[in-house]
């Protein structure tokens, strides 16, 4: 229990830090880009919208930094992230809540698949070291060095432009209305296939290499030798002794590199014009839509923290040593 509480405390502190960074960035930067935006939309903004933007971006120079900070938190607790200028006058929270499910499903699913698949391949190639699989390593390294978005570009060029098998953009057929029915879900799967494969392909190499190295390291541990000496079946030695221990650091690595992976997948969304928050972020950057950008950053950070907590729970379940003093 102590472990869980510690981790939760850590994530609360991290969330606080992220929000505070978010609060400070516009205040530390030179110039007032948001002021300029408000000026541009003069007349279309009502007073309450202006007030919330002022609170979020610290435009009210009369108030002290501390007052601004408390105002900011007040806004967040009301779920008010300001108005989006790209989708004027939709509130940022609404834009995000529409796009978040797309990202959660696409990124969540593909990240999980690539982790499981990559770990599995890593287990085998680490265990059968010196086999033909070793010759795949340079290829894997090469693929893992390709930026996600470029692989997406190539995927589009090949499978959407040259051989138009898959759609090049969008999350579903625009003639359909989002609903939980067969035509919509199959259309969503069809649209999600190419971006999904792109993410899996770029992310998997890292897991293969990481797991392979851990397998090689763990294979020379004493307890693996004991397991061999005991005459256990190869499967038992490989999975229950070697892989079972090798996966532990990989899971903490998974948690820690989630933030990085999510960054990469956001780009895939941009390239595929996938209706998730990555694409929204891309549009927000183009339109200098600061409220939307900041809102997206907050949501992404909070999601990553939640996923981290989940990974910690899995770790807790797998490693008895973290469970010791309850």
């Amino acid at each position: 229990m102590k472990f869980v509480l510690q981790r939760i405390l850590f994530y609360v502190v991290t969330a606080w830090a992220a929000i505070t960074i978010n609060f400070l960035i516009p205040r530390l930067m030179p110039g007032d880009p948001v002021q300029a935006l408000i000026a541009r939309f003069q007349g279309q903004l009502d007073t309450s919208a202006i007030a919330s933007l002022k609170a979020l971006f610290g435009l009210d120079k009369e108030r002290s930094l501390w007052q601004q900070y408390t105002d900011y938190w007040g806004q967040l607790f009301q779920g008010d992230l300001g108005l989006s200028f790209t989708f004027f006058p939709t509130p940022v929270s609404e834009v995000i809540s529409q796009s978040l499910p797309w990202t959660l499903v696409l990124v969540g699913l593909t990240t999980l698949i690539s982790f499981l698949l990559g770990t599995g391949i890593g287990v085998y190639s680490g265990w059968r070291r010196g086999s033909w699989m070793d010759s795949l390593l340079p290829v894997t390294t090469f693929i893992s060095s390709i930026p996600y978005f470029w692989l997406g570009l190539i995927a589009i060029a090949l499978f959407a432009v040259k051989w138009p098998i898959f759609p090049a953009a969008g999350g579903y057929d625009s003639s359909l209305v989002p609903a939980f029915d067969v035509p919509f879900i199959s259309s969503a799967l069809y649209h999600g296939f190419l971006p999904g494969i792109t993410i899996i392909l770029s992310a998997i190499a890292g897991w293969i290499l990481g797991m392979r190295n851990m397998m090689v390291t763990v294979s020379s541990e004493d307890y693996v030798m004991v397991a061999q000496a005991k005459g256990l079946s190869e499967r038992r030695v490989m999975f229950s002794y070697a892989a079972r221990n090798a996966i532990l650091p990989n899971i903490s690595g998974f948690a820690l590199s989630l933030g990085f992976i999510v960054g990469g997948t956001l780009l895939v969304e941009m390239v595929f014009s996938y209706p998730g928050i990555g694409y929204q972020l891309f549009q927000a950057v183009g339109a200098k839509d600061y409220p939307l950008m900041q809102g997206v950053f907050l949501i992404i950070t909070l999601s990553v923290l939640a996923a981290n907590l989940l990974a910690d729970m899995v770790y807790l379940f797998l490693d008895p040593r973290t469970r010791k003093e309850a």
Binding site: A18, G263, F297, T301, V304
Partner: peptide
């Protein structure tokens, strides 16, 4: 904290 916070969106901002 710096590890967990996604770097790319932060840098973009």
């Amino acid at each position: 904290i710096f590890l967990v916070i996604p770097a790319l969106p932060l840098i973009i901002i």
